[in-house]
């Protein structure tokens, strides 16, 4: 994969990117991403320091009513079109022959965090199956039956969907008691960590780095 790990995003570059992201200027955002990839930026650094940082910041701006949901959706949509720019590198790593299903809970429409989780694990050589936003638990269970993963990652961005997450965990645990589950997402900033960590076989990952370490 990319070997040069010293490429860094300057603060002014980041601020301009954030402004473009909220302003709907996809081309400008893509230009920076293209430049960083051509400079062989470390992909995990790109994911955490550009994509994740900017989406976290946009989430905070939305939660504090400083931007509208429309602006948040535009920024999300743009970021989702930027992720595939790294895919030729993301998917070129050697396989480690381990399978993981990454999914959002029912009613959870914020899928970008889950997608980044899938990409990070893909970079580590996992074969990932990304289920995306608002995945009905029945679909998830069918996929687990077909894909036979050794790990499930569940993402939750909005705290008021927490009960849906607990229901999904319960149903997955009933069907596959030994299948480990990693949970994470912005929703946990508002609490709930103890609720999931009390369930045997469920681990909370607060960052992408922590997720990597737990997944092994």
């Amino acid at each position: 994969m990319n070997s040069h790990r010293n490429v860094r995003i300057q603060e002014d570059q980041y601020q301009a990117y954030l402004a473009d992201l909220m302003g709907g200027k996809r081309q400008s955002c893509a230009k920076l991403v293209d430049h960083l990839i051509s400079e062989k930026v470390d992909l995990k650094y790109l994911y955490t320091e550009l994509f994740q940082r900017s989406m976290y910041e946009i989430g905070v701006l939305w939660e504090s009513n400083r931007i509208s949901v429309a602006t948040e959706h535009i920024a999300t949509a743009i970021t989702e079109t930027l992720l595939p720019m790294a895919y030729p590198l993301v998917f070129s790593t050697s396989r480690i022959h381990r399978r993981v299903v990454v999914s959002c809970t029912p009613n959870e429409y914020h899928q970008i965090g889950a997608k980044m989780v899938a990409d990070i694990l893909e970079m580590k050589g996992w074969d990932t199956l990304f289920m995306g936003a608002d995945t009905p638990v029945e679909s998830l269970l069918t996929t687990l039956e077909d894909f036979k993963p050794e790990l499930v990652c569940l993402s939750l961005s909005v705290f008021f969907n927490f009960n849906a997450l607990l229901e999904v965990i319960q149903m997955v645990k009933t069907a596959y008691p030994k299948l480990p589950i990693i949970v994470g997402g912005q929703a946990f900033l508002h609490g709930g960590r103890d609720l999931v960590e009390n369930i045997p076989g469920v681990t909370y990952a607060s960052t992408l780095k922590e997720l990597e370490e737990i997944a092994g």
Binding site: E80, Y87, P88, F91, Q111, G132, A133
Partner: peptide, 16 residues
């Protein structure tokens, strides 16, 4: 969007 996203991922996986 989700289907497109998965197709894109699959396409890149196959390309790799």
């Amino acid at each position: 969007n989700q289907q497109m996203s998965n197709l894109t991922r699959e396409l890149h996986r196959k390309n790799a």
